[in-house]
Amino acid sequence: MKLLTTLIFSLFFFVSCTKKETSIVGKWNVISPFYKATYEISNRERTFYGKALYYNDGTTQYTIADGDPGYFFTDLVTEDGKTYHKKKTSNTHKRHSPSIIIDQIHQDTLKVTSMVMHQPLTEKWVRTK
């Protein structure tokens, strides 16, 4: 009985952790009055990657159909419930954040903090299909 209980708790813990690590995977719309963007987060092994599918700030716009824009961020890892990168960000998305922290506050909502000129800018991303 003790072994069974341990197994159940271990399995529950494993499933919970696994779900949390991967749940940021998907497509996300940025909620901002200043620009529109849709990012796709994918994972490879235990790291996460972000790519812009659509971006429009009024003067610069691209869609994934215009060509692969490269990754917005790469090599994010999850620790203590937050996802952030330990390595230097890919340089392919130069006009945007050099650093990013993703905090999943709901299954379909992310609090994303990026550093702009060493100042934190926090935005909400919501899941989309």
Partner: peptide, 19 residues
Amino acid sequence: CEENIEESAINIVNTDPDP
């Protein structure tokens, strides 16, 4: 702002060289 961004969301692609 939002409406105008939406309606103009085509062909304003910044194709300038790597900054």
